[in-house]
C-alpha cells in the first residue's frame, strides 16, 4: 500500500479542510486508496504560497494572484506557424481543482495549446492569465510534453531529475536543502517510484520514465499540471496507475489539463472535455460534448462511433497504426 505510507497523522491543521471535497465525484472507487496525502508537500504548499495569495518564488519574483479570478484564463489566443493558423481564437477558463480533457484529432493543436500555456511558445495574439496575471514569470505551471527530448544516457538519477523541478523554488546559487530533498522524495512516493530514486534514468521502463516526470511536476509545486497524451503507449495497468495518481493530485487541489484521444475515458474521468480542432468546437461535460454533430466537426468524417455497454467509443481514423491500437483498447 505505497500510497498510505504517510498515514493520517501527516494531515496537519494547516491543511485546507475543503480540499478533499474538491476531488471529482467519480474519484475512483478505491476509496481507501484515495485517502492519500501529499502531506509534507501540501503542508508546505499551503503554509507557504497559496493561502497568502502569493505565488512565491524565492528566485526573487513576487506575483500577486487575484484569487477571485479563474486559475487559468485564455482570451482569443491565436498561434500562427508560418502561414498556418494552428490555434484560432481560443478562449476558455479553468477553475482551480478542475480536470479538463483536451480531445481532438492529430494536428488539432493540442500540443500547441499546452506549449503556449506552458510558455514554451509565444501566442501570435491573445492573452493568457493565471489568476488574472500574465504568466510572464509564473512558475506554477508544470508541463509534461508528449515526447521529452531527453538523452536517457545522461548521467542523472531519478532523484536528480525530480529535484530539477525545484530549482526555481530553491533559487539561484543556493543548493537543495533538506526540505527540498524531502519534497522530491515524497513526490516519488506519490508516483510509487521511491525505490528507484538512485537509478540512472536510462534504466527505467517507459511507464517509469513517465512517472519520473510526473514526480518532477509534483515537486515543482505547480498549481496547474498539463499532460500531453500521457496514456499513449501505456499498458492497461500503467493507465490505471496514472488515473490513480491523477485522483491523488486532484485531491490535493492541483488542476489537471490532459490531452487524450480516448473520448470514452475523458468522459469518465474528467470534469470537463474540450473538443479541439484548431479552434474550440465544444467545451462542456461528457454528456454535453458527446454529440455526433460536434464530433464530426472535431474529427472530420474520419471516425467511427462504437456503441458498447461501456458507452460511446470514438475510433479516430487518421493514422493506421494508431487506429489498431485504439481498436484494441476499446475491446479491453
Amino acid at each position: 500500500m505505497p500510497y498510505q505510507r504517510n498515514g493520517q497523522s501527516e494531515h496537519s491543521g494547516k491543511r485546507e479542510p475543503g480540499l478533499k471535497q474538491s476531488g471529482p465525484e467519480h474519484a475512483r472507487s478505491g476509496g481507501s486508496r484515495s485517502e492519500l496525502s501529499l502531506s509534507k508537500e501540501s503542508r508546505l504548499r499551503h503554509a507557504g504560497s497559496k493561502h497568502s495569495g502569493f505565488a512565491v518564488s524565492r528566485g526573487g519574483h513576487f506575483w500577486k494572484h487575484d484569487l477571485s479570478r479563474p486559475l487559468l484564463e485564455l482570451k482569443d489566443v491565436t498561434v500562427v506557424f508560418g502561414e498556418e493558423e494552428v490555434l484560432k481564437d481560443i478562449s476558455f477558463s479553468v477553475e482551480k481543482g478542475e480536470r479538463l480533457a483536451v480531445v481532438g484529432p492529430n494536428g488539432a493543436g493540442k500540443s500547441t495549446l499546452f506549449r503556449t500555456i506552458a510558455g514554451t511558445l509565444t501566442p501570435t495574439s491573445g492573452e493568457i492569465a493565471i489568476y488574472g496575471r500574465k504568466p510572464g514569470s509564473h512558475i506554477c505551471i508544470a508541463y509534461m510534453p508528449q515526447v521529452n527530448m531527453i538523452d536517457w544516457d545522461f548521467p542523472v538519477t531519478v532523484l536528480d531529475v525530480v529535484m530539477m523541478g525545484r530549482i526555481r523554488k530553491i533559487g539561484f546559487v543556493k543548493r537543495p536543502g533538506r526540505k527540498d530533498r524531502e519534497i522530491a522524495y515524497h513526490s516519488l512516493e506519490l508516483v510509487n517510484m521511491e525505490e528507484l530514486a538512485g537509478k540512472q534514468i536510462g534504466m527505467l521502463s517507459g511507464g517509469q520514465r513517465q512517472r519520473v516526470f510526473l514526480a518532477r511536476a509534483i515537486a515543482q509545486d505547480a498549481e496547474i499540471l498539463m499532460m500531453d497524451e500521457p496514456f499513449t503507449g501505456l499498458d492497461v495497468t500503467s493507465q490505471r496507475d496514472l488515473y490513480r495518481i491523477m485522483d491523488n493530485l486532484t485531491i490535493n487541489g492541483i488542476t489537471l489539463l490532459v490531452s487524450t484521444h480516448d473520448l470514452n475515458a475523458a468522459k469518465e474521468y474528467f470534469t470537463r472535455i474540450m473538443l479541439l480542432n484548431r479552434r474550440i468546437v465544444k467545451m462542456g461535460t461528457g454528456e454535453e460534448v458527446m454529440n455526433p454533430e460536434y464530433l464530426i466537426e472535431t474529427f472530420g468524417g474520419h471516425f467511427t462511433v462504437v456503441e458498447s455497454e461501456k458507452g460511446t467509443t470514438v475510433i479516430e481514423d487518421s493514422c493506421c497504426s494508431h487506429k489498431e491500437e485504439r481498436v484494441g483498447k476499446s475491446h479491453a
Binding site: 506552458a118 514554451t120 510572464g136 514569470s137 527530448m149 538523452d151 542523472v156
Partner: peptide
C-alpha cells in the same frame, strides 16, 4: 559551482528550463 543546477537543467531538459522561466 554557482549555477550548477541551472546549467544542468538547461542542458538536460530545455523544455523544463523554459517552463520554469529560466
Amino acid at each position: 559551482l554557482l549555477f550548477y543546477k541551472e546549467l544542468l537543467v538547461v542542458i538536460f531538459d530545455p523544455i523544463l528550463a523554459r517552463t520554469l522561466r529560466l
